[in-house]
């Protein structure tokens, strides 16, 4: 997961008082604060973490690498909000009795941003990449948070309401909403195909891992397309590909769906952009997104 983009609003204008900027939902630190809140609420109410040490290891690895790689390859010390979200996501989602998978997943996530690039733009959502790779290559040592969280509806509603407000203010609610609606509709189809209760098919989206997926992973501005319509189409395609993974009984279907759909969508967008701008613009312009404030996140 990376940081959702921030939009410039009245409170974030150059002339606005400093304290208003800090209290504004448009602050770039709101998403990290929100995910920290989820972590703390989950930990103190249910004890969701494998351990504090493992989560801290993931965060420290992500931040450390971001600082080092940013300094080396971009020549400056980067803001670590995005790396923090990546690290904390790995720390929450990865489940392993060992320590090293947390470091490896976080390192893979951050490094992927600097290595897996095309025309100056990284293709994969960092935490999606890091977690998917360790899940796929290390099934005997690594699993993902799925059933290790309270199944209490009240806590989920709090997350949904808070998450929706924040995502709405960040102008990315339509992505989450499209995905959720698509998932629910496709659950009906899956239920019909495999002759299982609809609630069984709906069940995963009521679990914890999906909340992080919906609010933080698929909304990542750096790894989604730019147009609102395109974002909705991509969100639907993620749900659609996920359905096929699910029909194949893939437990981490949503992660793998995003793993494939996300980069392909970006490549298509870049190809379309290059066709449109060929006569007048250089490829480097395509790397600057309308909502992004950081060169790499």
């Amino acid at each position: 997961m990376s940081q959702p983009a921030t939009a410039i609003s009245a409170t974030n204008r150059p002339g606005a008082p400093q304290w208003k900027k800090w209290l504004s939902l448009d602050n770039r630190y709101v998403p990290p604060a929100f995910i920290t809140l989820i972590l703390l609420a989950g930990q103190f109410s249910y004890g969701i973490l494998e351990s504090y040490e493992r989560t801290l290891l993931a965060i420290a690895t992500a931040i450390g690498l971001e600082l080092i790689l940013g300094r080396i390859f971009l020549g400056k010390w980067l803001n670590v909000a995005s790396a923090y979200i990546t690290g904390i996501s790995v720390g929450i989602l990865v489940r392993s009795p060992a320590f090293w998978p947390f470091a490896v997943a976080a390192a893979l996530a951050i490094t992927s941003k600097y290595v897996l690039r095309y025309k100056g733009r990284h293709l994969w959502n960092p935490s999606n990449f890091g977690i998917s790779v360790v899940l796929f290559l290390l099934p005997a040592s690594v699993a993902m948070l799925s059933i290790q969280w309270g199944n209490n509806m009240a806590s989920m509603i709090v997350i949904w309401v808070l998450g929706s407000i924040i995502i709405w203010r960040l102008r990315r609610f339509h992505i989450s909403a499209t995905y959720v609606i698509s998932f629910l509709v496709l659950a009906v189809i899956r239920s019909w195909i495999i002759h299982q209760p609809w609630l069984a098919e709906v069940s995963p989206i009521t679990g914890p891992e999906y909340q992080l997926f919906i609010f933080f992973m698929i909304t990542d501005p750096k790894t989604t397309v730019r147009s609102k319509k395109g974002q909705c189409i991509v969100a639907f395609l993620v749900a659609l590909v996920e359905m096929f993974f699910r029909l194949d009984q893939s437990i981490y279907a949503e992660l793998y769906a995003l793993f494939w759909v996300g980069p392909i969508a970006i490549l298509i967008e870049m190809w379309l952009d290059s066709r449109r701008t060929k006569p007048s613009q250089s490829p480097a312009v395509a790397t600057v997104t309308g909502t992004s404030h950081q060169p790499i996140s």
Partner: peptide, 14 residues
């Protein structure tokens, strides 16, 4: 797969 699918869900389902 089915076990993990349902076990992840809300108490109303599981």
């Amino acid at each position: 797969y089915d076990f993990a699918k349902v076990a992840a869900g809300n108490s109303t389902i599981i």
